[in-house]
Design a protein around this nucleic acid. Structure first.
Lengths: 228, 228
DNA sequence: CGATGCCTTGAGTTTGATCAATGTAGGTGG
DNA sequence: CCACCTACATTGATCAAACTCAAGGCATCG
């Protein structure tokens, strides 16, 4: 999206589990090109929480993370990111309306997504939480297929998904098994996943339509009301 | 903070429970002067969630809320807000570096706070959740007193606090009673609250030091390590 | 081949939700 | 002033959803 940014950014390849610097000087700023980044918060005496996921097109700067406390930015999967200093992005934004618009849009979207995620964490039961996550991934990284099916690679490990959803990994594993038994998802291996009927899955979470709105809903093959 | 904004804003007084428009034209933008605003998300078939609280000095625009889905902005207590159109704020930000800096700072802070709140919702037990909320209020709206005490009015009703913390109102009531029994808080009536020993309360939540960092920690009378 | 990391599954326990009853403050009208 | 109503808060008894702990499966890698 922000083509004016490219010449000023450092290209980086990430590997699964790699940690990206948040604390270094110049308030580092990242734009995700492919793969998924996780913002991890580990507070003393509490389990870690994956506070946010960043998909291709998303931007984040170090000042988005709580300072001093143990926040870290991890690559969930292999991918590519652009890195630049915040001051450079600010300069570009002041000069180029397209960059300014991109930054503003991405920020507003992030806050809205976080509000939704707070609802997921605060109110949903474990099945709704998993359905929400699957819908989110399908919308951001899914390959749409005929008849309302979607396929994708789960970018996060079971443990990471659990910590993103505020669940215990054991519990999450059980919920996934239940979803498989109900035919809501099919798995070919740990990662490779197929949702045979997106609408049926979306019907499992109250957040589906809000997520569709927020992700720009590139394509949802079948209107939600049709099936499910 | 943003004095250049004042002449372009509409002054509004809020009453407890009042709803502020999010959907009207021009992407309405609010700056809180006094009192507290709540961003409420009510998804079909789920309990409502208070996704975020906005204290004096905070800013939010309608685009921060998930669109179409039922988000609303409510005044938790009587207060005063400035209202202006987003396009006006953007114009001012482009002209005045002070406004630009204010907007950027407030946004980054909001995202960091939301990350912390996600951790609170996802990992903390009910006592840690309440302690976190009390620390947050003490830092944002408390009157500091000698010997590490803080007093304030709880701006939210029990039900609102519960929905902010992802708890059941009954459960919250029990936790508050436990805190009173332990001497962590004293209440003179429903709202008026005193924390005799801030450090002891802060020791109940893993998020205390991160919150202190994020709120700018105007004054924390006694370093946390001293007591508790 | 064993070692390791990740995931799954069962048995038992606990935390917090639910339901229902009771208490309290503030407001209204007789 | 009292009776009454309503909204909000507290508290107890019961229950279930999710956590914990432990055992076992299944890949990958040296």
């Amino acid at each position: 999206m922000p083509c004016a940014v490219e010449p000023h950014a450092t290209q980086m390849r990430t590997r699964r589990g790699q940690s990206l610097a948040l604390a270094s000087d110049g308030d580092p700023t990242y734009i995700v090109r492919s793969g998924v980044l996780m913002l991890e918060i580990s507070l003393p005496g509490a389990e870690r929480q994956i506070a946010a996921l960043f998909f291709p097109g998303d931007m984040l700067r170090a000042s988005f993370a709580p300072p001093r406390s143990k926040a870290s930015l991890l690559a969930a999967s292999a991918g590519e990111v652009w890195r630049l200093r915040a001051s450079m992005l600010d300069t570009l934004a002041a000069r180029e309306p397209a960059v300014r618009g991109y930054v503003d849009r991405v920020l507003a979207n992030r806050i809205a997504l976080q509000a939704l995620h707070a609802t997921t964490l605060g109110q949903f039961d474990c099945e709704q939480k998993l359905a929400t996550h699957l819908v989110e991934i399908a919308l951001r990284a899914g390959a749409w297929q005929p008849a309302g099916a979607v396929s994708f690679d789960l970018p996060l490990s079971r443990k990471d998904i659990a910590h993103y959803l505020g669940l215990n990994p054991d519990t999450l594993s059980r919920v996934i098994s239940r979803f498989k038994a109900k035919g809501l998802i099919k798995q070919f291996d740990r990662m490779r996943t197929l949702i045979p009927n997106f609408a049926a899955l979306a019907a499992c979470t109250p957040a589906a339509s809000a997520l569709i709105d927020l992700t720009g809903a590139r394509q949802v093959p079948v209107p939600l009301e049709a099936t499910a």
